[in-house]
Design a binder for these strands. Structure first.
Lengths: 366, 366
DNA sequence: GCCGGAGTAGAAAGCGCTTGCTAAAGGGTG
DNA sequence: CACCCTTTAGCAAGCGCTTTCTACTCCGGC
């Protein structure tokens, strides 16, 4: 039924070995033979059998990308960037790598399941994106699985999540365990959140609400830590204790923002600013405030995080923290393909720049 | 190095065949043997070699999804929905299908390239999303390629693009060629655009601008056709000839909308409404209008298409046409897996409902 | 004019798994 | 109690490709 190497070989009057070598190009083949083979390939419209060659060569052209939700532009942008690196100038006309996108929905079980599936495909590399769930048991299981994968030759890259390892939360600096072969592209979530909060403090806000993401995720914790540290270090006047003005939404979605804002307003009607876990949540916050008859930024300032494309076009344009998602994804892709040397310490941290736009302003002075 | 079937077999004291059968589960194995095998599998942490089993069984658990740009939520939502169907209740604990997402960037060459790559992987199915480029040569090449894939057992589903085939543009009804084994989930772009335009006409608008997408795409053409037909059929007053008030943006992106709106304003300063190719373009249109000091909808009404999540939260909330992207993607996924019988004629058309929100209103009466 | 080494092609042994066929038990039945 | 059928397991032949090793041809150099 299907055309095989042998068919091509027969037609070109050579052996299968020769055809294979012409196609892979890593063995000298005389020019005349090569053209004869290529002609046979075209005439027969031959397409290599991937599984067979993966088996024989013990290699694969699949690269896994784990995301929470591919419908979320945050992950879409990263995935797209990773994928764009997969066809770079590797072999003759680019490598033939394909991106396998896995929606984990943020679930640790799914994460593990997909890793097994990718291991089964003997994936060449895997990029894990988005914050990790902070659970000792799961971390251990995840770590073990990644070790095995790495041992089997699969390159592992974390993008937008903190480096792996037995390092305890809060513990920083060089890690003790012997060189985990897992590279990381991390976001400066703490720094970004801190700068954002400082911006609000500088504007004069003192009652600042915070609609955080799901409690158990690293991203949530880091952003919150940055926020709190800015609050604590603030000199120049009394600042409302942060805790009561923090609510944890169910997810990084619009409705969490809507509900969270309502809850904050209930706790503290004199709120003058709300920080959201990310831009999508911020949109929900804005909607809730508007529904309560509050103007942005005249009555309440709002800020997001991530700087997704729609944020600049929101009305008012959203003040937020820009995460270079495309750049980070591309970097992760390069690392995954081994196309770029590992960053010092295996961890590259990308900037998180404050983008001041129209949704934040000085608080009303009444 | 890696654990193989034989290792498991040895440990369980059975033959490799038995292990294979326990794992695939489609052959009777005695209970005792099965548990013994399962234990060995767990002790050895055995993971099947996908390429090897694909080769031997001449099957694959890869499903390709071609999208223009995965960073665009339009495609992200569809891809996510397709993927969510891949783990349905197929085998014992769900099938093991993986989604290969391919960013074509809208380029016909890339499209063909990725199809070859997927053919090489012997993909179980391929879902092509988004509008097609209307070019005879490319259509023929694409069609041929899809035929070959289908002949090789790969299921092909089109999602959000018109059915394939030698049917000439504009020609409708039953197609003459013998049953293309390609299923389609189509969007009612014409109907949606028509209803949207009718809405504007009903509000009293007569000078309606249209910022269309790239000229050569089916989606662009269909939406434009719906728009024009509504204009032509309108009874109840003079309507500005549509052509001069249509501009073609470079893409379905924000900047096309911004530039397009400016161009429309230049051509017709008394414009009272602007329809955009999609929601993202609409955001750009809004930004441009605002920058020109025009209020929405008081001075100019604006409408989008697709109803992406951010549209409802835009300010003002965007009037648009809702495309059930998730539903369509899920449907496409089911069809791709053969989990659902083909729709009559091989084509399922999904609704495109008008969503009237705050960005459209009666024109000023001055 | 003979030998050694490039340069090029082929034979064949797998890669790890699936599956058709065969074989060995076990259990009813006449 | 022999026989046949059912149930369960193993044998072994591939699936289509890669790659090592071998073989051959053609040169230049001594």
């Amino acid at each position: 039924m299907a055309v095989t190497l042998a068919d091509v070989a027969a037609r070109a009057g050579v052996s299968a070995a020769t055809v294979s070598r012409v196609l892979s190009g890593n063995y000298p083949v005389a020019g005349a033979t090569r053209t004869r083979v290529m002609r046979a390939v075209e005439e027969l419209e031959y397409v290599v059998n991937g599984p067979a060659s993966s088996l024989a060569a013990a290699s694969s052209d699949l690269v896994g990308i784990l995301v929470n939700d591919i419908a979320d532009p945050f992950f879409g942008i990263i995935a797209g960037a990773v994928q764009s690196e997969l066809n770079g100038p590797d072999g003759a006309q680019g490598s033939h790598k394909l991106a396998v996108v896995c929606n984990t929905g943020g679930s640790p079980e799914q994460e593990l399941t997909y890793l097994t599936l990718l291991q089964r495909q003997r994936a060449a590399a895997i990029v894990l994106t988005g914050g990790a769930v902070e659970d000792a048991e799961h971390s251990a299981a995840l770590s073990a699985r990644l070790q095995r994968l790495a041992a089997g030759g699969t390159r592992i890259v974390l993008c937008g999540r903190p480096p792996l390892g037995p390092a305890l939360p809060g513990q920083r600096g060089p890690q003790g365990h012997g060189e985990l072969p897992v590279l990381t592209v991390a976001f400066d979530n703490r720094g970004g959140a801190r700068r954002l909060t400082e911006h609000l403090l500088a504007l004069g806000h003192r009652a600042i609400g915070y609609v955080a993401g799901p409690a158990e995720r690293t991203t949530t914790r880091h952003r919150l830590e940055g926020h709190r540290s800015a609050l604590l270090e603030h000199r120049g006047g009394p600042v409302r204790e942060a805790e009561p003005l923090t609510v944890h939404g169910g997810g990084y979605d619009r409705s969490s923002g809507y509900d969270g804002a309502l809850e904050l307003l209930r706790r503290e009607p004199r709120l003058t600013a709300v920080l959201a876990a990310n831009d999508t949540v911020a949109l929900g916050v804005c909607a809730a405030l508007r529904d309560q008859g509050l103007r942005i930024p005249e009555d309440v300032s709002v800020a997001g995080f991530d700087d997704l494309p729609f944020s600049a076009d929101a009305a008012p344009a959203l003040t937020t923290v820009r995460l270079p998602l495309h750049e980070a994804g591309a970097r992760a892709g390069k690392l995954a393909l081994g196309r770029q040397g590992p960053p010092p310490g295996g961890v590259a941290t990308v900037r998180a720049d404050l983008m001041v736009r129209d949704s934040t302003a000085r608080p009303r002075t009444d």
